[in-house]
Computed example of a mutant assay.
Amino acid sequence: MKSKRLMLALSALLLAACDHPAPQAAAPTATPPAPAASTAKSAAQFQPPADSSIPNDDFGKQIALGREIFIDPGRYAKAYVGNQLSCENCHLDAGRLAHSAPLWGAYPMYPAYRSKNHKVNTFAERLQGCFNYSMNGKAPPLGDPVLVALESYAYWMSRNAPIGTSLPGRGYPKLAKPAQAPDYARGETVYKRDCALCHGDNGQGQQAAGRTVFPPLWGAQSFNWGAGMEQVNNAAGFIKANMPLSRGNTLTDQDAWDVAYFMDAHERPQDPRYSGSIPATRTSFHDTPDSLYGATVNGHLLGQGTNQP
């Protein structure tokens, strides 16, 4: 009963946060950030349909299944998942929330060329990459019912969105480089103050009643070195807009960069594209100052991977 009560309480917190998302502040420039109200107005230019409008027909069943997979892939797509994360951990409010890579901002932008794999990707191929990297699993084959359901959900959510237009609130905010280079020690201070309560002292996350309610941020149950969140700039933008949960835009930009660096300076599962050489894998796939793969932090060469929690 205790674990069930904890699950209900934490679920209520998550739902409350998603029902009342914090407005997104403008990315820092030479002038002060724009007022939160103006950015909330721009993000509201597109609103995805309410879940209650999912049609009650065979296509609606696929949409609803896609939503269930998105929220709980460990249950509905178990064969393809290799960690304790869900899609909703990085795409909040079941993929609806602006500034947390919402589905309605992504679906209309595909097919698209991606430098990550040096080819034009369909949306289904983009979803395959999420399973390979963020979920540390294996990609469902094209045409698999899991991909069909997820793509149906994304298509439905994007109804009336303009094709090929980058909508306000798409992706994660792009933060300007901080005044000071991101720092592990400062990031650890921010983490202990603002993140550890939910994500655990060692980044292990929290579970209740057998389900993850706050995701692990590093270690064997987190995203692997091939995921986009391993890049400090991506993590900083997501954190700034959305964290702590229900209190987005309360951290300073410097705090967001520092805690993103701290999070990404921990070991996690190996990049599936690993060639047998950390330097060669970095050269091929992580050749950017925003990736810590192949960097040495606190005497540890990052990119060795881990099979331990």
Score class of each variant (00 low, 15 high):
residue 293 Y to E: 01
residue 214 F to I: 00
residue 241 A to S: 10
residue 264 D to W: 02
residue 213 V to A: 08
residue 177 K to T: 10
residue 78 K to L: 02
residue 216 P to Y: 04
residue 138 K to V: 10
residue 123 F to V: 00
residue 7 M to G: 12
residue 224 N to S: 08
residue 58 D to T: 14
residue 76 Y to V: 12
residue 49 P to K: 04
residue 27 A to N: 07
residue 134 S to D: 11
residue 225 W to E: 11
residue 296 T to W: 00
residue 14 L to N: 07
residue 175 L to P: 03
residue 303 G to I: 01
residue 194 D to K: 14
residue 253 D to S: 13
residue 299 G to K: 05
residue 83 N to E: 01
residue 30 A to H: 09
residue 306 T to W: 02
residue 157 M to A: 10
residue 279 P to L: 10
residue 95 G to R: 04
residue 107 Y to I: 14
residue 195 C to E: 03
residue 201 D to N: 12
residue 48 P to V: 10
residue 156 W to I: 11
residue 288 T to G: 07
residue 207 Q to A: 11
residue 184 Y to V: 10
residue 21 P to Q: 07
residue 2 K to F: 15
residue 186 R to Q: 09
residue 75 R to F: 02
residue 152 S to R: 10
residue 279 P to N: 13
residue 9 A to Y: 13
residue 183 D to C: 04
residue 301 L to G: 12
residue 138 K to T: 13
residue 286 H to P: 10
residue 278 I to N: 00
residue 166 S to K: 15
residue 140 P to F: 07
residue 291 S to H: 03
residue 108 P to A: 05
residue 172 Y to C: 08
residue 59 F to Y: 11
residue 112 A to W: 05
residue 23 P to F: 01
residue 63 I to S: 08
residue 7 M to D: 11
residue 206 Q to S: 05
residue 7 M to F: 13
residue 38 S to H: 08
residue 175 L to T: 06
residue 71 I to W: 01
residue 95 G to W: 05
residue 28 P to H: 05
residue 118 H to V: 09
residue 37 A to S: 09
residue 27 A to V: 06
residue 283 T to L: 15
residue 105 G to K: 04
residue 68 E to A: 14
residue 62 Q to A: 06
residue 58 D to M: 15
residue 246 S to V: 13
residue 299 G to P: 07
residue 219 G to C: 00
residue 106 A to I: 05
residue 142 L to T: 03
residue 305 G to K: 04
residue 141 P to E: 05
residue 2 K to M: 13
residue 72 D to K: 13
residue 163 I to V: 14
residue 236 A to T: 06
residue 17 A to L: 03
residue 109 M to N: 00
residue 287 D to T: 11
residue 180 Q to M: 11
residue 301 L to Q: 14
residue 154 A to I: 09
residue 228 G to P: 03
residue 204 Q to Y: 02
residue 112 A to S: 10
residue 180 Q to F: 08
residue 17 A to N: 14
residue 156 W to D: 09
residue 106 A to M: 09
residue 1 M to H: 13
residue 207 Q to P: 00
residue 153 Y to G: 01
residue 33 P to T: 02
residue 109 M to K: 05
residue 59 F to K: 12
residue 12 A to D: 14
residue 8 L to N: 09
residue 58 D to I: 14
residue 27 A to Q: 03
residue 134 S to A: 12
residue 175 L to R: 03
residue 96 R to G: 00
residue 90 C to R: 00
residue 17 A to R: 04
residue 35 P to I: 14
residue 119 K to Y: 02
residue 37 A to R: 13
residue 278 I to Y: 09
residue 189 T to K: 15
residue 68 E to T: 11
residue 270 Q to V: 11
residue 185 A to E: 04
residue 114 R to K: 14
residue 118 H to K: 15
residue 85 L to H: 00
residue 252 T to Y: 10
residue 206 Q to D: 02
residue 80 Y to T: 07
residue 304 Q to I: 06
residue 217 L to R: 03
residue 223 F to Y: 11
residue 53 S to M: 14
residue 232 V to E: 00
residue 153 Y to I: 05
residue 230 E to P: 09
residue 77 A to H: 05
residue 172 Y to F: 14
residue 252 T to W: 14
residue 207 Q to N: 12
residue 17 A to D: 02
residue 128 Q to F: 00
residue 167 L to Q: 10
residue 150 L to C: 08
residue 81 V to L: 01
residue 11 S to H: 04
residue 89 N to A: 10
residue 96 R to F: 12
